[in-house]
């Protein structure tokens, strides 16, 4: 995803001369080509995130299309008030590109995880929130952000994620069906979509056909399309590499309730507790019950109930 992000941005920077990158002392091995091509349109703003965020807002006020790049705690947490007041409140064209979504950096330690970023972002009006599952969605997310006149947050993992499906019919702002199915759906975002896809593929011979839905854009939620995509699935698992409270599960519960949608929703997410375990990302997913094995187990359980 990281490679696709910079490749896409570098391509778009040819025609959009206002594209400007602010990197908070991050991006080794990412920005070298971009910097060589557009030396006046990149800055390392140092280890000073409040300033970097305000500076990005100021550059946007001067007419630049600004992309701030850093690991998620440093694009959102450290400088949350700058994101809120300087960028979102003033509705400036700044894209926050956060890397290390979820448990990407495990076992890097809690300071480097981002398992509550959606809780923060979903509280910010004017902010479009996109968490791509793979390179295809990352490219579409960057394309969207380049033309957006309002703030965007793109939550990416790292590099080397498998492509889930070559074509997405609905565009980045809407849910995409990665594996068609019926009865049970798994809705997910970010690199963990891969776990759901694996589960569906491994269930192929069992007669159970879960529908796997990637929902890259969490804000604004395209409820109409989601409802249509889920029309033949009464049971919906929300799979997240994020805290259970304050992520997509709670948001969907709220939206389904408001819309009078009676589907059953099941959370598969990380409990809201600081993480002290020293496991790699796969081990963490297993431990928190959000890996493909756990998804298969959950689907079989639900399947048994519905017969």
């Amino acid at each position: 995803m990281r490679t696709t992000f910079i490749k896409t941005l570098t391509e778009r920077a040819v025609s959009d001369e206002s594209i400007y990158v602010v990197s908070g002392d991050a991006g080794f091995g990412v920005f070298e080509d971009y910097k060589a091509l557009y030396p006046g349109r990149y800055i390392n703003s140092g280890i000073a995130e409040a300033n970097a965020t305000g500076y990005a807002a100021g550059m946007a006020m001067a007419g630049f299309n600004v992309f701030v790049y850093n690991i998620i705690p440093f694009v959102l947490y450290r400088c949350f008030e700058q994101v809120r007041n300087d960028i979102c409140y003033q509705r400036l064209p700044v894209t926050l590109v956060g890397i290390g979504a979820g448990l990407t950096y495990a076992p890097g330690g809690m300071t480097h995880y981002s398992v509550e970023d959606l809780s923060l972002c979903l509280a910010l009006p004017n902010l479009t929130v996109i968490s791509p599952a793979d390179g295809i969605e990352t490219r579409a997310a960057v394309d969207y952000a380049v033309q957006s006149e309002a703030p965007v947050y793109i939550r990416i993992a790292k590099s080397g994620e498998p492509v889930m499906k070559d074509v997405r019919e609905n565009g980045i702002l809407s849910p995409g069906v990665i594996r068609d199915g019926e009865g049970i759906a798994v809705v997910a975002y970010g690199s963990i979509v891969a776990e759901a896809v694996q589960a569906a593929d491994r269930l192929k011979d069992s007669g159970i056909r879960p529908k796997i839905v990637s929902l890259p854009t969490i804000q604004p939620l395209d409820m109409e399309s989601l409802d249509a995509v889920l029309s033949n699935t009464e049971h919906v698992i929300v799979l997240e590499e994020h805290f259970r409270h304050g992520g997509l599960y709670t948001r969907l519960l709220e939206r389904f309730s408001e819309a009078g949608i009676s589907r059953r929703i099941y959370p598969m997410a990380i409990p809201n507790r600081f993480i002290h375990a020293i496991r790699n990302q796969a081990g963490m997913r297993q431990m928190f019950g959000i890996d493909s094995d756990s998804v298969i187990k959950k689907i079989k359980e639900i399947s048994k109930i519905i017969g």
Binding site: G54, Y55, A56, G58, M61, A62, N85, D86
Partner: peptide, 14 residues
């Protein structure tokens, strides 16, 4: 504490 970083970005951008 928000004005100077924004002013810096604006000045640099202009």
């Amino acid at each position: 504490g928000h004005g100077l970083p924004m002013g810096l970005g604006l000045a640099h951008g202009l």
